[in-house]
Amino acid sequence: MPSTQAAWLILAASVAAEALGTASLTLSAGFTRFLPSVLTVICYVTAVFLMAVATKRIEMGMAYAAWAGSSAALTAVIGVVWFEESLNALKAMGLCMAICGIVLLNFSSNGT
């Protein structure tokens, strides 16, 4: 069983896999392009597997909240950087609030 710190690193890898999977999903053009489609499936399976490993040491609710918020924020950043999606003040504030929420959740946990 991983330590708590290792579990958070595993969860971070799960977030990265999920965000990469979502970017690949965009590139797959509705699963009509083979390689991006395969990468999407591999990334999503990896993300779920790593989440399962991380929840051995991190409470499920905490892990999922951190995973969902971080994945959404990272996916939005990828959209802005790689896919040239718009970024306005309201979207930037929302991303900052999501990150602040994750930080507050982590501070509220009692080390597990």
Rank of each mutant, 00 (worst) to 15 (best):
P36E: 12
Y44V: 09
V45Y: 12
A47E: 02
E59A: 11
V48L: 09
W8K: 01
P2N: 04
R57D: 03
A12V: 05
R57K: 14
A68N: 10
N88A: 04
A13E: 09
I78V: 15
F34T: 14
L74D: 01
A98M: 10
A76S: 14
A72Q: 11
G111P: 07
S108T: 10
W8C: 03
K91Q: 14
A63D: 05
S24W: 03
A23E: 00
A16P: 03
F107P: 02
F107C: 08
G79F: 12
R33S: 08
V15R: 10
T26P: 01
T46V: 08
A19Y: 00
G79P: 08
Y64T: 05
A7T: 06
E84D: 09
C100I: 13
A12S: 14
A98N: 01
G111M: 06
V15W: 14
A54S: 12
S28I: 11
E18D: 13
V45H: 08
G79Q: 13
L104S: 06
T32W: 00
I58S: 06
M62G: 02
M62T: 12
A29L: 06
N110Y: 05
C100E: 00
E18T: 15
V80T: 13
A63K: 12
A89L: 13
W67Q: 11
K56G: 09
T4A: 03
E59N: 13
F83S: 03
V103A: 06
A68I: 14
A16R: 03
A52Y: 12
F107E: 08
V48D: 02
G94D: 04
S3A: 04
M97Y: 05
M93F: 11
V80G: 04
A7P: 05
T46A: 03
Y64C: 07
N88D: 15
G61Q: 15
K91N: 10
Y64N: 02
T40M: 01
M60P: 03
F107A: 06
A76V: 13
A72G: 08
F83T: 10
A54T: 04
S3T: 15
A23Y: 08
I10M: 05
V77W: 08
K91E: 10
A54R: 05
C96T: 11
S70M: 12
Q5V: 02
Q5N: 09
N88Q: 09
